[in-house]
Design a protein around this nucleic acid. Structure first.
Length: 888
RNA sequence: GCCCGGUUAGCUCAGUUGGUUAGAGCGUCUGGCUUACAUCCAGGAUGUCGGGGGUUCGAGUCCCUCACCGGGCACCA
C-alpha cells in the first residue's frame, strides 16, 4: 500500500503507465484460456502492415478493440483478442525497394531469394516496432497467439484454400484485360485503382473510309492507343452511321484495314458517336472485342513503353508516343478538332502511377458464387454492421462484384501453388511441391513465379490464425469471432473477402458484428496528410498527455459512422479529467484511516440500517443508472455516450456533490459517520474505477492498487452490475431539490457580488411538507453554499439588507451586513418571471388544446398538468418576491 | 448518373424508438489559490436546430423538395 500522503498532487501519466503493462502481461491477464464455464468472446486484430509505424487510425482502432475486450473480460467472458501483422505485399515490397534504391540497388540486383531475405529482415524489425507501439496503447491482446500472414501456418492455409478453390473451379487462369501498374510492374485488382480527376484533351481524328473519299471522325482521349485499334464502333440505331456498318476504314498511321461494327455500348451523344475499339488497352473495348471476335493488338508493354506492334513508335514511352502520334496525325491533317476534356484517371493505389489496362495472363477468383451466400448471410443478420447503413454499401458492391485478379508479379508474398509442365505445358495445382506433372507425369515442373494478392491471405485471417485447416480447440471455441472493428475503407478489400472465405471454408460467417470506425481527421475535419503537415503522431501525444487521455478522447469522439475531428485542446480537457480522477482518489486516500476493502454487503447493511445520508443514497442510486447505461451503450458500440456519461457522473456528480458532502463527515467529530462515509466513498470510487477501466486502464489500475486489494488487478475485477435495490427515486428527487436550492443561493451570491470568501447567514422558508427534510439538510446547505448560519423560519423578514430568491424546495433570504443594491435582485427576478411566464403560457396553450388532451398518451398529459401547476406556483412566488422588493 | 453521410451556440460536435421551452467540450465574461485538484472551484451569456413544404395533438428527431459540403460506386471512347 502506498502512503497516501506521498501521492503527488498532479497525475503523471508517463510514470504511471510504464508500471502496469508489463505486469499485466506477466500475470497472463491477456492470454485467452478456454474456460467452459464462461462464454467465449473473440476479436481478431486487423493486422497492421509491416510497413510503417503506428498512426492515429491504428490508435483509434486498437483503442476501441481494447475497450471492448477489457470490458468483456471484466464481464466474465472468456476473451480472445488475437493479434498479428500483415505482410502487405506491394506496400512492403515498395518500402524495401525504396530503401535499396537509396543504396543505389535494385531488387533484380539481389535476385529473388536474396531480396526475400532482405524483406524478412525488414519485417522482423518493422513488426516488433509497430507492435511495441501498440503495447503503449495498453492493448491487451493475447501475444502468445500472435500471427503473421506469411508465417508457416497461414501459408499452409493459403495453399489449402487455393487448391480447393481451384478444384471447385472457382479459381481460373487466363488472358484478360487487367489493371497494370507499369512502375510496380504487376497486375492489380480493380479495388487497387484509385481515380483522380484530370484535365485532358479529346482528340477528334479522321479515319478514312475505305473505297471512298469520305472519312469518319472518332473522338479519343488516348490517341496513342489507336495504334492498337482493331475496329471502330457505332450504335446500331444511330442513323448517321448506318451506312458504314459492315464496311471498313483505314487506321491512320498504321494503314491497317479495320471493320466498322455496331454495338450498343456506344454512347451516341458522346463525342462524334463513333468510338475506336482497342481491345488490348481498354476494358469496354476488350469486352466489345470479345463480342465481335476482334483481334487484340498490344501496343503498350508492361514497362509502359510502346511495343514492336506499335511500329515506328516502338520503344517510346506511352506519353511520348501520344505526342508523336498527335503530331503525325496533324501533319497528315487528320486531326479535326481538339477539345478540353475533364476525366478521371486511374492510378495505382500504392505508387500513384497511372495504370495501364492491358491484356495479360493472370489468376482470378470467380467472385459471384462466393459473394451470393454472404449477401444472404447479412440479410439473415448472421452478421450485423454497425452502423447498419454500411450494409447497403456492402450489398451494392457484392451484387455487382467482378472476378478478382489475385496474381501479382511481385516477389514478396505467397507464391501461387501452381506448377507448369515443361513437356505438356499444363498446370498442376497442389498443396505441396509435386514431383510429377499430374497430366503427363513429367518431372520437368516449374512453379508459378507470381505471388498472391496480399488480401488473399488476410481474407482467411479469422480462421487461419486459429490453426485452420486443422480442427484446433481455438477454432472450435472462438470461431466465428464476436466482433470485427475496422475502417470503412477496407470493407471491400477485407471485410467482404473474409465473409466469402469464412462462409466457404468454415461454413459460417467470420464475425457476428462488424463495427466500422471512422477516420481520424485533424481538428478542422481535414484528412491528415504529410503534405498538409497536419499529421498528429499518437506516440508523441501519448508522451505529452498520457495514453489514457488520448484513449478517452478517441472513445468519447467515436460516434458510430462519423469521422473524428481529433482535437488536441479536447484531449487536454481529458487529461484534466484524468487528473481529476487522480485527485479525487487522493482526497479519499488522504482521509482514509483504516483501509479495508468494502463489500456490497457492507453497503447493504448501512442501507438497511438507514444509516446513509441523502447524498449517499443519491449517489448509490445514480450509480445504478450509470452502470446500466454504460453496459447498454457498450453493448451497442456507443462508446461516445458511454464515456460521456462516465465523465459527467464522475466529475459533476461524484466529485462536485458527493465528495463535497462527504468532506463534512471526514472533518466532523463523529468517527462512526466518518467511517461510514469512507466506506461509501471508497465503494463508489471503486465502482467508478471499474466502469472507467476499459477506457482508461492505466490511471484506474494505479489508483486501484493504492486502495486495499491485496494485489489483485482491476483488469480482472468484475465489471459493475446493477443492484436494483439501491435505486432510490425519493433520494434522487430530494437531492434534485437540494441541488437547486444550493445553486440558487450560489447564484444569488454571485450576482450580488458577495465575496465568495465571506460567510453570510441565510433564512429559509418552505412548505410544511418539506420542513423536516429541509431541517435535516441545513448543515449541508451551509457547507456547500459557504454560509455561516442557516435558519428555517416561518416567514422571511422583509428588510433592506436582504437578497432574496426562490427555488422549488424553499425560498431564501441572504442576510447581509450592508445594504445592497436591490437592483441586481430585481433584474434577476424580472428575468425569472419572464421565463416563468413563457413557461406557463406554453404549458397552458398545450393543455387548452383539446386534441393534445385527447390524443396524447395519458402520462404525457398528466406530466404536463403537473408541470403547469408547478410553474404557476413558482411564478406566483416570484411575483410576490418582486412586489416585496418594490415596497420596502 | 446511382448511393450514403452531413448542415444544431463563436469553434468542434452529441442529441437511440417523435413527448419537458435543445446539450457537451473548448472558447468567452464575472468572481475566487475555500488544505483532493488553478490540469481547480462558483456563477453568467450565447442557438429562427441549412431553406421551403408536409404528416402529427406534438418534429432537431418521420416524409417530400431545394441548396450547399463531404464520401463511395459506376461511366469517362
Amino acid at each position: 500500500m502506498t502512503d497516501a500522503k506521498s501521492i503527488p498532487k498532479a497525475y503523471d501519466p508517463v510514470a504511471v503507465e510504464k508500471k502496469w503493462y508489463g505486469w499485466w502481461e506477466e500475470q497472463g491477464f491477456f492470454r485467452a484460456k478456454i474456460d467452459a464455464d464462461k462464454s467465449p468472446y473473440s476479436i481478431v486484430l486487423p493486422p497492421p502492415n509491416v510497413t510503417g509505424s503506428l498512426h492515429m487510425g491504428h490508435a483509434l482502432n486498437i483503442t476501441l478493440q481494447d475497450l471492448i475486450t477489457r470490458w468483456r473480460r471484466m464481464q466474465g467472458f472468456d476473451v480472445l483478442w488475437l493479434p498479428g501483422t500483415d505482410h502487405a505485399g506491394i506496400a512492403t515490397q515498395n518500402v524495401v525497394e525504396r530503401r535499396l534504391a537509396e543504396e543505389g540497388k535494385k531488387r533484380t540486383d539481389l535476385g529473388r531469394e536474396q531480396f526475400e531475405k532482405v524483406v524478412w529482415e525488414w519485417k522482423e524489425q518493422a513488426e516488433s516496432s509497430i507492435l511495441n507501439q501498440a503495447r503503449r496503447l495498453g492493448c491487451s491482446c493475447d501475444w502468445s497467439r500472435k500471427r503473421f500472414t506469411l508465417d508457416e501456418g497461414l501459408s499452409r492455409a493459403v495453399r489449402e484454400v487455393f487448391v480447393r478453390l481451384y478444384q471447385d473451379d472457382l479459381i481460373y487462369r487466363g488472358e484478360y484485360l487487367v489493371n497494370w501498374c507499369p512502375r510496380c510492374t504487376t497486375a492489380i485488382s480493380d479495388l487497387e485503382v484509385e481515380y483522380q480527376p484530370a484535365q485532358g484533351k479529346l482528340w477528334h481524328i479522321r479515319y478514312p473510309v475505305e473505297g471512298s473519299d469520305d472519312w469518319v471522325v472518332v473522338a479519343t482521349t488516348r490517341p496513342e492507343t489507336m495504334l492498337g485499334d482493331t475496329a471502330i464502333a457505332v450504335h446500331p440505331d444511330d442513323e448517321r452511321y448506318t451506312h458504314l456498318v459492315g464496311g471498313t476504314v483505314i487506321l491512320p498511321l498504321m494503314n491497317r484495314k479495320i471493320p466498322v461494327i455496331a454495338d450498343k455500348f456506344v454512347d451516341r451523344d458522346f463525342g462524334t458517336g463513333v468510338v475506336k475499339v482497342t481491345p488490348g488497352h481498354d476494358p469496354n473495348d476488350f469486352e466489345a472485342g470479345r463480342r465481335h471476335q476482334l483481334p487484340i493488338v498490344k501496343v503498350i508493354g508492361e514497362d509502359g513503353k510502346m511495343t514492336e506492334e506499335a511500329g515506328t513508335y516502338a520503344g517510346m514511352d506511352r506519353y511520348q508516343a501520344r505526342e508523336k502520334v498527335v503530331a503525325d496525325l496533324e501533319d497528315q491533317e487528320l486531326i479535326e478538332q481538339i477539345e478540353e476534356h475533364l476525366h478521371n484517371i486511374g492510378q495505382c493505389q500504392r505508387c500513384e502511377t497511372v495504370i495501364e489496362p492491358l491484356v495479360s495472363e493472370q489468376w482470378f477468383v470467380k467472385a459471384k458464387p462466393l459473394a451470393e451466400v454472404t449477401v444472404e448471410a447479412v440479410k439473415a443478420k448472421r452478421t450485423v454492421f454497425v452502423p447498419a447503413n454500411y450494409e447497403r454499401v456492402y450489398f451494392e458492391w457484392m451484387n455487382n462484384i467482378h472476378d478478382w485478379c489475385i496474381s501479382r508479379q511481385l516477389w514478396w508474398g505467397h507464391r501461387i501453388p501452381a506448377w507448369y509442365c515443361g513437356d505438356c505445358h499444363q498446370v498442376t495445382v497442389a498443396r505441396d511441391a509435386p514431383q510429377n506433372c499430374e497430366h503427363c507425369q513429367s518431372e520437368s515442373l516449374e512453379q508459378e513465379t507470381d505471388v498472391l494478392d496480399t488480401w488473399f491471405s488476410s481474407a482467411l485471417w479469422p480462421f487461419s490464425t486459429m490453426g485452420w485447416p486443422d480442427q484446433t480447440p481455438d477454432l472450435e471455441r472462438y470461431y466465428p469471432t464476436s466482433t470485427l472493428v475496422t475502417g470503412f475503407d477496407i470493407i471491400f478489400f477485407w471485410v467482404a473477402r473474409m465473409m466469402m472465405m469464412g462462409l466457404r471454408f468454415m461454413g459460417d460467417v467470420p464475425f457476428r458484428a462488424v463495427h466500422i470506425n471512422g477516420l481520424v481527421r485533424d481538428e478542422k475535419g481535414q484528412k491528415m496528410s504529410k503534405s498538409r503537415g497536419n499529421v498528429i503522431d499518437p506516440l508523441q501525444i501519448m508522451d505529452e498527455y498520457g495514453t489514457d487521455a488520448m484513449r478517452f478522447t478517441l472513445a468519447i469522439m467515436a460516434v458510430p459512422g462519423t469521422d473524428i475531428p481529433f482535437s488536441i485542446s479536447r484531449m487536454a480537457g481529458y487529461r484534466a479529467f484524468c487528473n481529476k480522477i487522480w485527485n479525487a482518489g487522493r482526497c479519499l486516500l488522504l482521509n482514509l484511516e483504516d483501509q479495508k476493502p468494502v463489500s456490497k454487503e457492507e453497503i447493504n447493511k448501512l442501507q438497511e440500517g438507514d444509516q446513509l445520508d441523502l447524498g449517499e443514497r443519491w449517489i448509490l442510486s445514480r450509480l445504478q443508472k450509470v452502470i446500466s447505461e454504460t453496459n447498454d451503450n457498450l453493448e451497442k458500440f456507443r462508446f461516445h455516450e458511454a464515456s460521456n456519461e462516465l465523465y459527467h457522473f464522475f466529475w459533476h456528480e461524484f466529485c462536485d456533490w458527493f465528495v463535497e458532502l462527504a468532506k463534512m463527515n471526514f472533518t466532523g467529530e463523529d468517527p462512526e459517520k466518518k467511517s461510514k462515509t469512507c466506506q461509501v466513498a471508497i465503494y463508489i470510487l471503486e465502482e467508478n474505477l471499474k466502469l472507467l477501466h476499459p477506457f482508461i486502464p492505466f490511471i484506474t489500475e494505479e489508483l486501484w492498487q493504492q486502495l486495499p486489494h491485496s494485489g489483485d488487478s482491476l483488469m480482472v475485477a468484475p465489471y459493475p452490475v446493477v443492484h436494483p435495490e439501491w435505486m432510490d427515486a425519493e433520494a434522487e428527487e430530494q437531492m434534485e431539490g437540494f441541488q437547486e436550492l444550493v445553486t440558487s443561493i450560489r447564484t444569488s451570491r454571485s450576482e450580488n457580488n458577495i465575496d465568495p470568501r465571506s460567510k453570510i447567514s441565510v433564512q429559509l422558508v418552505c412548505e410544511q411538507k418539506s420542513r423536516s427534510f429541509l431541517e435535516s439538510q441545513c448543515d449541508q446547505i451551509k457547507s456547500l453554499a459557504h454560509l455561516s448560519q442557516v435558519d428555517l423560519v416561518p416567514h422571511l423578514e422583509a428588510e433592506g439588507r436582504r437578497v432574496q430568491g426562490v427555488s422549488k424546495l424553499a425560498d431564501f433570504s441572504l442576510i447581509l451586513d450592508e445594504v445592497v443594491d436591490v437592483e441586481a435582485d430585481r433584474r434577476r427576478l424580472i428575468q425569472q418571471i419572464g421565463r416563468g411566464e413563457d413557461n406557463v403560457r406554453y404549458l397552458q396553450k398545450q393543455l387548452e388544446n383539446s386534441d393534445f388532451v385527447n390524443k396524447a398518451p395519458e402520462q404525457v398529459v398528466a406530466a404536463t398538468r403537473e408541470r403547469h401547476t408547478e410553474a404557476v406556483q413558482q411564478l406566483e412566488k416570484l411575483q410576490e418576491k418582486l412586489d416585496g422588493l418594490t415596497q420596502p
